[in-house]
Design a protein around this nucleic acid. Structure first.
Length: 324
DNA sequence: CATCAGGGCCCTG
DNA sequence: CAGGGCCCTGAT
């Protein structure tokens, strides 16, 4: 990777999310591992984006309130971006942050729920959001697998350094993703040198269908749950855990919560049962019976609330469960 | 020094 | 369908 590229050209517009819209809890998820391709301060968010073969810098700034939302979108690039490509960026940002989705049915249905009710007030307008493309999320899922946070960060940053780029915009320098071609063209040995271990094979094989043009993310968004899951788990290195994160975060399937990784099991045991370890099937059944078709979204509100509180004032039992 | 598990998944039997 | 193996790292 060479030195940072400046992105001086800038286009600005104002987005109007469907109210209510909670800016901070949508653009920033405190449970995600830190990554040099994005940055957050209250009311302001930076990320890089690779779309249509172009590397861009994106900023989102909160210029409204939960009930009268207004988000200023700035798109930075090395040179002028055609109008159609800018529109594609706007649509992509709106989809990834779930900006125009109406959650009022969810809010009214669980307003009196003992556990969820107060969280729906505190986080009213929080959306399910992802900041990466499907291909990029496969990389994220891969470095998450069988690794602690520290190691995930190390692998992710090693990959950015070797295959990504650095860009400067709006006074920030951030990493940007690579195109799948870059990984498909590399060797497993080169990848292994980045300390990704057996994941080298996964990263290479995952890039292949994207290079061949076999995966069309917008098209997948229209598929029914079962078919979408089939496509996702057919991707090499994507099993039940990664598929669930994708179904929910990337494809906004609010009802998906059918698999519980061990560390989440410990955390939900505390939250729902006030016990150290409840069997995973019992937890999943409890979540299903309480929140039915909204269970994925309900779990997200509970989860994010926990991590925001933890960020504000450390929660000892949670700190003990987060392995660095 | 050795051993082990960690925010899974693939492959085999 | 269960279980071994896989990379690397820090904890014990």
């Amino acid at each position: 990777m060479s030195r940072a590229i400046a992105l001086p050209w800038c286009y600005e517009t104002v987005l109007s999310p469907l109210a209510p819209f909670h800016f901070d809890s949508t653009v920033h998820k405190p449970d995600y591992y830190p990554s040099s391709d994005n940055a957050y301060e209250p009311g302001r968010y930076w990320q890089t984006m690779r779309l249509g073969g172009r590397v861009m810098g994106i900023t989102l700034a909160n210029e409204g309130t939960v009930d009268q939302p207004r988000v200023r979108l700035s798109v930075y690039a090395a040179e002028e971006i055609p109008c159609a490509a800018l529109q594609a960026v706007e649509r992509e940002i709106e989809f990834r942050t779930d900006m125009q989705v109406d959650l009022s049915a969810f809010y009214s249905r669980y307003a009196d729920d003992p556990l969820l009710g107060p969280l729906l007030v505190r986080w009213r307008g929080m959306r399910v959001s992802t900041y990466v493309s499907l291909y990029e999320y496969l990389v994220v899922a891969t470095v998450l697998q069988n690794a602690t946070v520290r190691r995930t960060v190390q692998m992710s940053e090693n990959l950015f350094r070797r295959y990504g780029s650095r860009v400067v915009f709006d006074g920030r320098e951030l990493s940007a993703f690579w195109d799948p071609e870059a990984i498909a063209a590399t060797s497993e040995e080169e990848l292994r040198a980045l300390k990704v271990g057996y994941r080298a094979k996964h990263l290479k094989r995952q890039a292949e269908p994207f290079v061949r043009g076999e995966i069309d993310e917008p098209e997948l968004r229209a598929l029914p749950d079962a078919e979408l899951r089939k496509v996702l788990t057919s991707l090499y290195g994507i099993g039940p855990a990664s598929a669930m994160y994708l179904m929910f975060g990337q494809f906004k399937r609010y009802d998906v919560f059918d698999h519980l990784p061990p560390w989440e099991q410990k955390i939900y045991s505390q939250l729902l049962f006030d016990r150290d370890l409840v069997p995973a099937p019992a937890i999943l059944e409890e979540i299903r019976s309480r929140w039915g078709e909204w269970r994925g979204l309900a779990a997200h509100y509970i989860w994010e609330d926990l991590f925001w509180r933890h960020r504000q004032e450390p929660i000892p039992w949670l700190a003990a469960l987060i392995r660095l």
